[in-house]
C-alpha cells in the first residue's frame, strides 16, 4: 500500500496518466471523425453498413481526417527505416535539410545576438537607439517576411540553405540579445568595483567578469532561440516551392491530402525540437559544471 502511494505521487506516473488519457481521447475522436466520413461515402454509394463494420474500418483508412498514433508510427517506420537516407521519400532526408538550415541560422543568430548585446552594454548611444527597435522587431509578425527574404536572396543568386538560415537567424537573435544584455549587466557589483580598483580595462572586465556572469542567462536564451530557429526554418520551406525539408513535406502533404504524411512530419519536427533543446541543455550542464556550479 505504501509503495502504491509513493508511486502515484511520482511525476512520471502523473505524466503517464495524462498521456494515456490523451491517447484515449485521440482514438475516440478518430473513431468519430473517420467514422462519419466512412458513413458518408457508404451512403453516397448506397451500400448497407453496420456500426460494427464502421468501428473495424475507422482505423485503417488511407487518408483519414484524423490518423491514429499507430498509423503514424507505421508511416514513420516506413519512411525512416525502409527508405535509403538519400531518397526523397525518406523522412530523415527532409529532417536533415531542415536541421542544417536550423543549425546554421541558430549559429548566425546567436553570434549576432551576442554582438548586439555587447554593443548595447558598452555603448550608451547604441543602448538608447537600438534597444527599442530590438524589442519592436518582435511585435512584428516576422515570419510573414519569410517568403520575401527567400525571393529577394534568390534573385541575387543566393539559393539553397542560406535564405532559410537568414530567417532562422532573424527569429533567434532576439532572445539571445535580451538575455545577454540582462546577463552582462548582472555581474556582481562588488566584483565590478574590485576590478575598477585594479584599473581593469573594459576588455578585461568583459572577459574576466561579465562573460561569466552572462553564461546562465545565455543558455536560457539559447534554448528559446533554437526552437525559434527551427520554426523559422520550417516556415521558410513553406511558400517557396522548396525542394525538401519538413516544411515542404507538410505543404506537399496538405496539397495531396496525405494526412498521415502531415502528421508524421509534424511528429518528426516535434522530436527534432525536443532533441535540439535537450542538446543545448546538455551543453549548459557540462559548461556550468566545469565552472563548479551546483546542479
Amino acid at each position: 500500500m505504501q509503495r502504491l502511494k509513493s508511486l502515484t505521487q511520482h511525476t512520471g506516473f502523473a505524466v503517464a496518466v495524462v498521456v494515456l488519457a490523451l491517447l484515449i481521447v485521440w482514438y475516440m475522436a478518430a473513431l468519430w471523425m473517420n467514422g462519419q466520413q466512412l458513413i458518408m461515402t457508404l451512403e453516397r454509394t448506397q451500400q448497407p453498413w453496420t456500426y460494427l463494420e464502421i468501428v473495424r474500418n475507422a482505423y485503417g483508412i488511407a487518408r483519414p481526417p484524423l490518423p491514429v498514433p499507430h498509423q503514424i508510427a507505421v508511416e514513420l517506420y516506413n519512411s525512416i527505416v525502409n527508405q535509403p537516407i538519400t531518397s526523397r521519400r525518406s523522412l530523415l532526408y527532409h529532417t536533415i535539410i531542415t536541421l542544417n538550415s536550423t543549425l546554421l541560422g541558430f549559429a548566425m543568430g546567436s553570434i549576432l545576438g551576442i554582438l548586439i548585446a555587447v554593443g548595447i552594454v558598452h555603448n550608451r548611444t547604441l543602448n538608447a537607439s537600438l534597444m527599442p527597435w530590438v524589442i519592436a522587431s518582435q511585435t512584428v509578425p516576422i515570419l510573414a517576411i519569410a517568403p520575401i527574404i527567400v525571393v529577394v536572396l534568390g534573385s541575387i543568386n543566393i539559393t539553397g540553405i542560406l535564405p532559410k538560415a537568414m530567417i532562422s537567424m532573424y527569429l533567434s537573435f532576439f532572445p539571445v540579445t535580451i538575455g545577454m544584455v540582462k546577463g552582462l549587466r548582472s555581474a556582481d557589483k562588488l566584483h565590478m568595483e574590485l576590478m575598477m580598483t585594479y584599473n581593469a580595462s573594459a576588455q578585461q572586465m568583459f572577459w574576466k567578469l561579465r562573460w561569466f556572469s552572462a553564461q546562465p542567462y545565455l543558455f536560457a536564451s539559447l534554448k528559446i532561440a533554437i526552437s525559434a530557429a527551427l520554426v523559422g526554418a520550417i516556415v521558410a520551406e513553406l511558400p517557396t516551392g522548396a525542394q525538401g525539408g519538413l516544411g515542404a513535406r507538410l505543404l506537399s502533404g496538405s496539397y495531396y491530402g496525405q494526412t498521415i504524411q502531415i502528421w508524421a512530419a509534424l511528429i518528426m519536427s516535434a522530436l527534432l525540437g525536443w532533441f535540439l533543446i535537450t542538446l543545448v541543455g546538455l551543453a549548459e550542464r557540462w559548461i556550468l559544471k566545469r565552472r563548479g556550479a551546483v546542479l
Binding site: T11, A14, V15, P65, L143, S227, L250, S254, S269
Partner: peptide, 29 residues
C-alpha cells in the same frame, strides 16, 4: 497537484515544438 505534475512537462514539451505545423491539418478540418 496531480494534474499539475502531469500537464506541466507536456506543456513545456508543446512549447518547444513548432506548433505552426498544425496549420495544414486545421485547414483540412
Amino acid at each position: 497537484p496531480f494534474l499539475q505534475k502531469g500537464l506541466l512537462p507536456l506543456g513545456n514539451f508543446m512549447a518547444s515544438i513548432p506548433i505552426i505545423g498544425i496549420a495544414p491539418i486545421m485547414v483540412m478540418w
